[in-house]
Structures are given as C-alpha cells and as structure tokens.
Amino acid sequence: MASVLEVSHLARSYRTNLSWRKYWILRDLTFSVEQGEIFGFIGPNGAGKTTTIKLIMDLVRPDSGDIRIFGERHRNVTVKKRIGFLPENPYFYDYLTAEEFLDFYARLFGFPRAIRRSRIDTLLERVGLANRRDRQLRKFSKGMLQRLGLAQALINEPELVILDEPMSGLDPVGRREVRDIILSLKAAGKTVFFSTHILSDTELICDRVGILNKGELRAVGRVSDLLGARVTHWEVAFSGLAPDSLPGLSRVVSREGREVLGVCQDEEEMHVLVRAILERGGSLQSVVPQRERLEDIFLREIQR
C-alpha cells in the first residue's frame, strides 16, 4: 500500500539579507506517513517542524527533495481536494461570522449549497461551536478559533489531515477535545499528521512519531517500539519508616511527613526494599514500574 505522504531527501535553507552563507533549516529529511495512522512530528522550537509542514503544503519551495501525497506531486491542485490543513497560530478574517467563514472555504471546493450547509452544520456541532455560528470571529477566544480552524480543515472531509501545533494555546479541556477529534478521524479511516511539542498528548494518541532536531530526523518509529517494554526503574511509596539505611533504595524522590517516595534501580533491588519495609513494620503504599517516557527519549535524542 502506497504511503499517504512521502517525504524524500527534503532540504531547505535560507540566507540572511546581506550574507552569502546558507543556513540549513532542513537537510536530507526523509520519512513517510501510512494510511490510517496518526503520526506525531515532535521536536523543540526551531527544529524545522513548521518549515516541513509548509513545504508539504506548498507554501514554501524546497531547495531539493521530493514530496508525494497519495502518490502524486504535492503541488497538484487536485491533491489539495483530499487534504485538510490547520496552520500554527492561525489568523482568520475577523469580520466574518463562523458560518460565513466555513462557507467561504467550502466554496473554494466548489461544493453546492446544500452540501455546504449540511457540512457546516455538522462541523460546527462537532467542534462545539454550533451556538456561535452567527458571531463574528473578532469576538472569538483563542480556543474557539483553534476549534473553528479545525473545522475549516475538515470542511472537505479530507483523507489526510495536517495540523501544525493543533493543541497550542488550549486549556486541558480544549486539548482533550482536539485529541478526541483526532482519534475520531482515525476511527473513520483518515490519516492524521501533526506537529507538536507537547509530548504527553503525542504519547496518548500517536501510532508513530518522528523526532526532529536541528533539521534532522533523529528517530522515527512506532511509539511502542521507541519506548520499549523495558522498565527503567521502580518507584516505591511507603510510610512509617525512615528511608536512611533501607537496602535496595537508591534514592528518595520526596518526603512528606511520614510518607516517602523512593526509587529502586531494578526489580531485584525492588524486591529487597519491599521485604525490608515489610520486615521492619513499615506501611507499603505502592510499587509502580516506570517505563521510559517519550520525554526521556526526546531529551536523550536532543542532546546527542
């Protein structure tokens, strides 16, 4: 099955106004996104995530490299009929109402009025803005604008949805709503490609991730593969005992009154510590294995 999105050896540079030197934003970027998956594109600020997305959306021209969407040249106008896009910190025509705003984009696809109307109704419902349809955008909060932007990206029921920092500026409720929408898209068989620097969201919903740093792809793969099943350490919470001179305890994370949270290097040490706590009459509260979080992988890759 052909990939929905294929990026090969993408390179992009810029020159500051007066100098000859080229600064590379991206060098030799290669990855692909498969049909039906949610792909998270993560990296620190300035890594080149937005540039990559702009290149995919033909807002910017690459120095070299190739981009294929649904197997066709990404510049084809017909390809754009099947994709939806939400840019980072979008700014919209604030003199339009929500309904006029969505209708405007719908008309760019050439949908007849009946279809436009029903899609707009559905989408406004879906992003929770149905009761604001007649309000001008200048009165919308950031969260509302983000949700409306998402609606605009979905107006043509696209097969591939590309989102640049879709969670930015949202409160936890908003983030949860966006996550749910993305998951529902996957459930409907759509492909989602989004960039973010909020790792917890990525971990929760992505099938695969790509970690970008300084224009290079550091790691790509399934979340589960990257994270591994390996347990890195164990966290043991107990009370009623002083943590000093307890065997198996490598360090103390926190102490609050009589409650202690400690760390053990591995399973053996954990068993040692648990036995010691029980023997000495302490009260064991929890034993939790810690696996490598995405954040750890991220930080590790960044520092390389």
Partner: peptide, 14 residues
C-alpha cells in the same frame, strides 16, 4: 503578513 493566506492556498485553488 497575517498569514490568512495559508489556509486559502492549502485549498484546491491556484
């Protein structure tokens, strides 16, 4: 400048 053009150019319009 306002980047309102991003969403437009991403639609099937020359």
């Amino acid at each position: 400048e306002r980047r309102t053009i991003y969403t437009i150019v991403s639609k099937p319009i020359h």
